[in-house]
Design a protein around this nucleic acid. Structure first.
Lengths: 363, 363
DNA sequence: TCGATCTACTAAACCGGTCTAGCTCTGGCA
DNA sequence: TGCCAGAGCTAGACCGGTTTAGTAGATCGA
């Protein structure tokens, strides 16, 4: 015999299927004595519900979907995704909700998967990442009638719940800091230009540069890969009048840039300050350790999962949510331009940290 | 009206449910004309199958399960897992098979999830990672009757298909190389001691040390975290008669160790050679870039997915599979002990590479 | 003592597919 | 003309749960 069904339990316990269903789900309709007996029989027979049968009755799938449209090979490289996944899992698994994960080639394939999973009742909701400027996925999701949490925003378009960290504020805090310690030529190795957060950061840098009267502030779009990060860094450092500080949109690129600087004999932070927009082990364990924006991506994942679960339970729309603005963690990869020695233990990092921590005016 | 069912299509097309099912699944039983008509109607009504209903009939779930028993926070840190995931996805998504992912606290919880997913018909098979010495999960999986691919092996216990890279051979190649360029005191920062691959590596190091008559060869177990990697490195380097080379079981630890060396003023590779058992961007982009075992984890993921899919299709048991023995990629973090300068572009790396590439005797 | 009400339960419909048994019609052939 | 084979289709069982309508029996108040 295959695995037991409620019909088997009903026969064994001498009751009807309905009674078994009531008993197993803790609903009224059976006496305590009968309930106990049924539960005991179910336990003995090692019964488990057949999720498909339940789902057929209209119940929840107890799973949420995450579809990522990037080349599969690059996902493994991004600490951001793995940390996000970890955070999601921490909350989801506590509620016994599984994560349906799929990596596809492009946005078209992504929306197709949304349609399929929704109509197949595979998932109860979606998590959407890499928000684009005029995102074609949002209207599709609206049409599917399943709740979704979008990572990125705020903004119009789509009825999905949005969760985001303030990229603009974050970029401003970086530029303010760099300007405060004397930098006048700042470069920014940005991510893919059609992502909304890339746009926000680029704009923030431009605005800050104007306000602070910087000599130069250029954003260079890349594909987030270490290769392009390295190549763009090489180009920037080869120029006459090269920047004295570079802000990298991801830690992988920042570390790649650091390697290029070493290779070209450009001292960090003596001749070049490096700031990473992403703080992971990577930023901490290289030498010198990188000044980085400490965005707690794990916590972000947790929050996204929590919001989505709440959405599933209430059916009432939740509120958009802004994560705490990331704080700049000053380490040893930044110092005043042409300033302190490149070696470890330079006091520059300490001084800079004090400036930022106190929140006082620039020096 | 909700989403259309085959009954709706049948009504619309003026045929029976059965005819619609035949037509949609490309089975004989309907004429070409009728089939076309039905398909057109289905298309018009934008019909999609209800996966639960299909599954209820005994069909496949079109999903495989991966359960990882490690603290959620550490997953994000391991490039190994993200790369494995990427490889899995590359193959799975091509077959429209979804990945059910869950991160749990311990092995007990893990087997419980196996039981649940199997009896709930959520997945068609499993991928098992982190094979342990006497792995309690294998008998459970045997009992569930679902195919599984185990990463690690070879060995007895369990009827699952096994896929592994030869850890022993890999460790031998590292030690041979280090010994060939003159190292006599080698340390090994190992992973969790109850993992099978950790045991294999430790034993391989011991055997090689005896065969080569090394002065010292010690394995230190850790939890794979950068923190323990750094701490253990600090301890090793503080000792009198410290090792001249350290082999790290993961690239995160290796990079952390590199940081510690820099901080303690120990030149790499001048005074200390560093080898990582894992090669990822991490190993390439730090400075100096690390000599590392190039295990193609992405390809491993692809192979695992392929094998599992084959297992699902045939129902015939596949063959255990050994991945190509990883090759040692020599970069600039290794040189003869007390040898060349620590700076970039040291010829040591080049010379060493030649030694290994040619496969000739030690210098 | 009678109806009203409540409890504890059963029978059967239902979800949306798959699949089998069987029916009808057509054509071929003796 | 009668019989058979096969194509094309239908009706309905079936998967394993949930849920609703209905019923038997106990309890209660007047």
């Amino acid at each position: 015999m295959g695995r037991p069904t409620i019909a088997d339990i009903a026969r064994q316990a001498g009751v009807s299927k309905g009674a078994v269903s009531f008993a197993l789900n803790g609903r009224p309709g059976v006496s305590e004595a009968t309930r106990d007996r049924i539960l005991r029989v179910a336990e003995e027979m090692n019964w488990r519900p057949h999720s498909a049968a339940r789902a057929l009755g209209g119940a929840r799938a107890d799973a949420v979907g995450l579809v990522i449209a990037r080349p599969a090979r690059t996902i493994g490289v991004e600490p951001f995704f793995s940390q996000l996944l970890s955070g999601l899992q921490a909350v989801l698994s506590a509620s016994s909700v599984a994560l349906h994960l799929m990596v596809v080639e492009d946005t078209a394939a992504e929306t197709e998967v949304y349609r399929r999973w929704a109509s197949e009742h595979r998932v109860d909701g979606f998590i959407v990442v890499d928000l684009q400027v005029k995102d074609p996925r949002l209207p599709v999701l609206d049409g599917l009638g399943l709740p979704a949490v979008v990572l990125g925003g705020p903004g119009k378009g789509g009825n999905q719940l949005r969760i985001w960290a303030d990229d603009r504020e974050a970029m401003l805090s970086i530029v303010d800091y760099l300007a405060a310690i004397g930098h006048r030529r700042i470069a920014h190795l940005a991510g893919l230009p059609h992502f909304q957060h890339t746009q926000r950061r680029i704009r923030a840098l431009r605005d800050a540069a104007r306000r602070l009267g910087l000599e130069e502030a250029v954003s260079v779009p890349t594909d987030f890969s270490d290769a392009e990060g390295a190549a763009a860094t090489r180009t920037l450092l080869s120029r006459r009048g090269r920047p004295t500080a570079i802000v990298y949109d991801s830690d992988v690129m920042a570390v790649a840039g650091l390697g290029v600087a070493g290779e070209m004999g450009v001292a960090v932070p003596g001749e070049l300050s490096i700031v990473s927009f992403d703080d992971s082990v990577l930023a901490r364990i290289v030498h010198p350790p990188l000044t980085a924006l400490s965005r707690d991506t794990f916590a972000l994942g947790e929050q996204v999962a929590r919001s989505l679960l709440a959405e599933l339970d209430d059916a009432g729309p939740g509120r958009d949510l802004q994560m705490p603005t990331p704080r700049l963690t000053v380490r040893e990869s930044t110092s005043p331009p042409g300033g302190g020695p490149a070696g470890a233990g330079s006091p520059a990092g300490v001084v800079a940290a004090r400036i930022v921590d106190s929140g006082s005016e620039p020096v």
